Simulated assay, not measured.
Amino acid sequence: MRILLVNDTEKPIGELRDALLAAGYEVLEEVAAAGALLKAVESQQPDVIIIDVDSPSRDTLEQLAVVHHQAPRPVVMFSADGDDQLIRTVVGAGVTAYVVDGLAPARLAPIIQVALARFEQQSQVRRELDQVQQQLGDRKLIERAKGLLMDKRGMSEPEAYAALRQQAMKQGLKLADVARQIIAMADLLG
């Protein structure tokens, strides 16, 4: 497993690097500033990002949000700041495991495993949400296309739906794609 270390503190991060190497992880080139995080993630393709910080700065949180949106990865953050509002903000920026005051080498592997499990669970929820949103969008398109057929061609709802299905089968397309074509044509013709 490839680990990207981000050191956002003044203290040396060598102990964390050594503990990860001893646990069998591949530790990638360290990132010294949060501003370089997205570029490092895109170029080094880590499996997990670990950030050591006294208290995450606004720049760090903004960069994490960008990474979470553009190249999501499990993120473990070790911090000295246990403020409740900060923890909510950090989790909202995409951190999957936030550990306060505890960089014990023996705890690293379980913490990373929790971050991986939470990240996979969140990814599954995001995929399911995207699928449901896509289905809802498709359903709206189909309803709109049926409405157009009912209005313009004087069809009943079942007839309009049957016409959409027949056209989809004839063209080898999904029902939503045929609906999209009908709506585009209606928009073009006015």
Rank of each mutant, 00 (worst) to 15 (best):
D81H: 09
Q63C: 10
M169Q: 14
D47Q: 12
A176I: 09
V90L: 05
L108D: 02
I182D: 02
D81W: 00
D59Q: 15
S79T: 15
A33D: 13
E62D: 14
V114T: 15
K39P: 00
A104Q: 13
M1H: 10
Q124I: 10
L173V: 01
Q70H: 11
R139N: 07
E159R: 09
V132G: 00
M150A: 07
I49T: 03
A186G: 08
I87L: 14
V76F: 08
L21K: 12
V132F: 08
R144I: 01
M1W: 00
S43W: 01
G92M: 10
S156A: 06
A36D: 15
F78P: 01
G14R: 11
L189P: 00
K140S: 00
D101P: 03
V53H: 03
G94L: 07
Q63P: 04
F78T: 05
K11V: 13
D52R: 14
V41N: 03
Q181A: 14
D138P: 01
E128H: 13
R139V: 00
M77V: 11
Q45H: 12
Q45M: 10
V75N: 03
L136K: 10
V6G: 03
G82D: 14
L20P: 04
I3F: 03
P46V: 05
K11Y: 13
D130L: 13
V90M: 02
L108E: 05
A97G: 00
I87C: 13
A109M: 09
K11E: 11
P74H: 06
L141G: 04
E26Q: 15
Y98M: 05
D177H: 09
A104F: 14
